[in-house]
Design a protein around this nucleic acid. Structure first.
Lengths: 218, 218
DNA sequence: ACCTGAACACCGTTCAAGT
DNA sequence: ACCTGAACACCGTTCAAGT
């Protein structure tokens, strides 16, 4: 039954099934995906250029689903909303995060949001030199907390005794709630810091001494 | 020649070779590692409990190498130094980062540093509720920038036209230098925000409105 | 154009067999 | 105790063959 009259596959169906597979918690792979689609692994290569391309397909899909483009009324509104959209996206598909991190972003819609972020920061008054770094800071923050969602229960597993960490972990609400609270706190801190820097209050916070290689900090 | 008089392998030699393999840029795997050690893959299982255990071995090794335990004179000094140590660790072994992220940390020395971070924040005066979140924030930040080191050249690859991002990328110093600058800027922002929060200035920075689900931000 | 099935060069892990 | 070699159940990808 080599070729059916109506195609079994399409990039859309592949993206759907791939995301469903990832969300199910099963390890993602071309073979497992083909199995789920009731198809031979080699069939996929008629529609898609291998495993990495399927992952990019998933990225495009979740960005399209969770990150509508808006016109924001202020730069800080833009920053907060884009960060929260990204957060919600990762939260909806936590198992996807380890698959997409590190891979170069080519999806146009995804890049558009970074562009929007950069534009907002320029309009806020940050220098060109700073803006790219600030975007990197916000991205690192989002990615880091995306990964935090992958295993919100047990990041640290202290076998020996700890001074404070152990007790804090015991008394804390675990899981997604803790991760969400931390994300919101971090976002608040970052935004506050951005405002402070714009207001020239940065000089007062300059406790960070220049990085020195062999500087012993005892 | 089944068993040699003096053992060919040890966890130390395995950790060494594994890290060398990772640093070489080659994809990490049990088989490739065995090849590098001049040994059969199955031999490794006499010393180590599989691939994940070898990765944990590498984590323990780089933590031991790059993160000596210090007694810090102030809480902010502790935060800055521990973050920079971690940064230097990731920078020395960027290809290791994607392997260790997401995996639960069991290495005692690694946990000790998070404990030290938590203790410093408690001493600084942050509430117990906040401290765990703040540690998560710092960790997300460090992890995010660790991943940034994996591919510092091309994180974004705008195919279409962008408003600001494209120009900023063109004019920026790429590579590790850019990543380092962004890390230092982010660290400065975070530390400034922590100081501000301790000083009660947090109320002025409360631009972040509570997360609302169906709140349209146009 | 789009699917199958065989084939290839890999994986990570187990286990009997050797010394 | 510690290594080899065969074996197992997987990978991701290619390609001739079918309609």
């Amino acid at each position: 039954m080599s070729r059916p009259k109506v195609a079994l596959l399409s990039t859309d169906r592949i993206a759907d099934a791939a995301l469903a597979l990832v969300d199910s918690g099963a390890p993602f792979g071309v073979n497992a995906l083909a199995r789920k689609l009731g198809v031979t692994p080699s069939s996929l290569y008629n529609h898609v250029d291998g495993k990495d391309a399927i992952i990019e397909l998933m990225r495009a899909r979740v960005v399209a689903d969770h990150m509508p483009t808006h016109v924001y009324k202020s730069w800080d509104h833009a920053v907060v909303e884009i960060m929260r959209q990204q957060r919600a996206m990762y939260a909806a598909h936590p198992a996807l995060v380890p698959l997409i991190v590190g891979k170069t972003i080519t999806d146009a819609h995804a890049i558009e949001h970074y562009d929007q972020l950069a534009t907002a920061l320029v309009e806020a008054g940050f220098s060109n030199d700073e803006v790219l770094s600030l975007v990197a800071v916000l991205d690192a923050f989002a990615i880091g907390f995306g990964l935090d969602l992958t295993s919100p229960e047990a990041i640290w597993q202290p076998s020996g005794s700890t001074h404070t960490l152990g007790k804090l972990i015991e008394n804390s609400a675990g899981g997604a709630a803790r991760s969400d609270a931390a994300f919101e706190l971090g976002l608040e801190l970052l935004l506050g810091a951005l405002h402070a820097r714009l207001n020239g209050a940065a000089s007062r916070t300059a406790q960070v001494t220049p990085a020195a290689g062999a500087d012993s900090p005892d």
